[in-house]
Design a protein around this nucleic acid. Structure first.
Length: 366
DNA sequence: ACTCTGCCTCAAGACGCG
DNA sequence: GTAATTGAGGCAGAGT
DNA sequence: CGCGTCC
């Protein structure tokens, strides 16, 4: 569930760490995206009516492919270079949380059965969405699709969000795009929300800058992590009676979780038994991620023949749509490499295309 | 008043045609 | 072989 | 914009 109430807390207490940006201003940028989260959304919404989904001839769902295909084209056309990061094994501490979600899905499955019996359309719609889960098959389909499109895929050893943040910290990508606030807790230096929202919705991209946020909150990164744990995260319960406001006050006042625990009134605030805040802290601070320095992220040319085989022959896509999309990708690639070339001639000091010294990329938008 | 809880709810893509 | 999200906002009620 | 379609 991310971090409870963090958006509002930052809006109230660190407004300068959040900036509205235009979608177009990310031209040429490398952006890390949590793939499983995207796939989940596609499965819920793409081409669904009741329990019916988009399928191939064999009756297998293709909603995730349709969604992933068009979204990725949209990003590439905007000159954005997406990296999709796939989940590995969740950490043990998250197991209890996952168990809860699992039982909720079981409930929904029962509700769905009842609704289907009675024939209540609205309920069928509602409950069937709640039974959605991302299977390894969905993940493999999408990996295959992305590789054929020439888009890099990263397999995280554990949490995708943590791996995204690590890519960002290592300056292999400019920012992490997600709706999940714990990207910041994992230490992503820049974090984008609403990047994928259509411009028709009038919601601007919101860019969070962690160093600015820390400066405004007057906290160190370690203190920020403690703040997030106190607000409530996926890894451990929060303390009853402590919400975002109180958490911020306590961290500012005492400086660290240890000091807070020593000083607060334990009558008033019941600390849960075996409260694993240290473990949670470790998962945020040193999550299990890969950092293979040698592996360069590469955006290759699309494999047209492979795409036609996979999408048209195996999954029933319209062939015109696929060939047109391949053209779009090629054009987009040319444009963005041209853009980079011009940029290099304008700014000889720039050594790579990631990092703080690259804001001049914005000149392309006008 | 302010804050937090604990419920509840919902919505979640992208495109093109008219 | 298996399992796998997440906000956000509303509103009543209680504790400080 | 609203609405149907994508597979």
């Amino acid at each position: 569930m991310g971090i409870k109430g963090l958006t509002k807390l930052l809006a109230d207490n660190a407004p300068r760490g959040m900036k509205e940006q235009k979608f177009e201003s990310y031209f040429g940028r490398k952006i890390a995206i949590d793939a499983s989260m995207s796939i989940y959304q596609f499965l819920i919404v793409v081409g669904r009516s009741g329990t019916e989904m988009l399928t191939n001839e064999a009756g297998e769902t293709t909603s995730h492919l349709v969604g992933m295909f068009s979204r990725t084209i949209r990003l590439l056309e905007a000159g954005i270079k997406p990296v999709y990061v796939f989940d590995g094994k969740p950490p043990d501490l998250k197991k209890q949380e996952l168990a809860k979600r699992y039982s909720r899905r079981e409930d929904a499955t029962d509700d769905l059965a009842k609704a289907t019996e009675i024939g209540n359309k609205e309920d069928i719609e509602k409950f069937s969405k709640r039974t959605v889960k991302v299977t390894p098959q969905h993940n493999d389909d999408c990996k295959k699709l992305l590789r054929l499109m020439g888009v890099p895929v990263v397999e995280a050893p554990s949490e995708a969000e943590a791996q995204c943040a690590a890519l960002c910290k290592a300056e292999k990508v400019y920012a992490v795009a997600s709706e999940d606030m714990d990207s910041l807790t994992f230490g992503a230096s820049r974090f984008l929300r609403h990047l994928m929202d259509p411009s028709s919705k009038k919601i601007p991209v919101m860019e969070f800058d962690i160093s600015q946020i820390l400066e405004e909150l007057e906290l160190s990164m370690d203190q920020f992590i403690d703040l997030c744990i106190l607000c409530g995260c996926d890894y451990c319960d929060s303390i009853r009676g402590i919400g975002p406001q109180t958490a911020l006050k306590l961290v500012r006042q005492h400086g660290s979780m240890e000091s807070i625990l020593e000083n607060i009134n334990k009558e008033r605030y019941q600390i849960p038994d075996d409260w694993p805040y240290e473990e949670a802290r470790r998962l945020f601070k040193e999550p299990l991620v890969t950092d293979d320095e040698q592996t360069e992220l590469k955006w290759a040319a699309p494999d047209e023949e492979g795409l036609i085989n996979f999408l048209v022959k195996e999954n029933g896509f319209n062939i015109d749509r696929v060939t047109k999309a391949v053209e779009k990708i090629k054009t987009a690639k040319t444009k963005s490499s041209q853009g980079r070339y011009e940029l290099l001639s304008k700014n000889l000091l720039m050594v790579n295309d990631v990092g703080k010294n690259c804001h001049s990329l914005n000149f392309f938008k006008s």
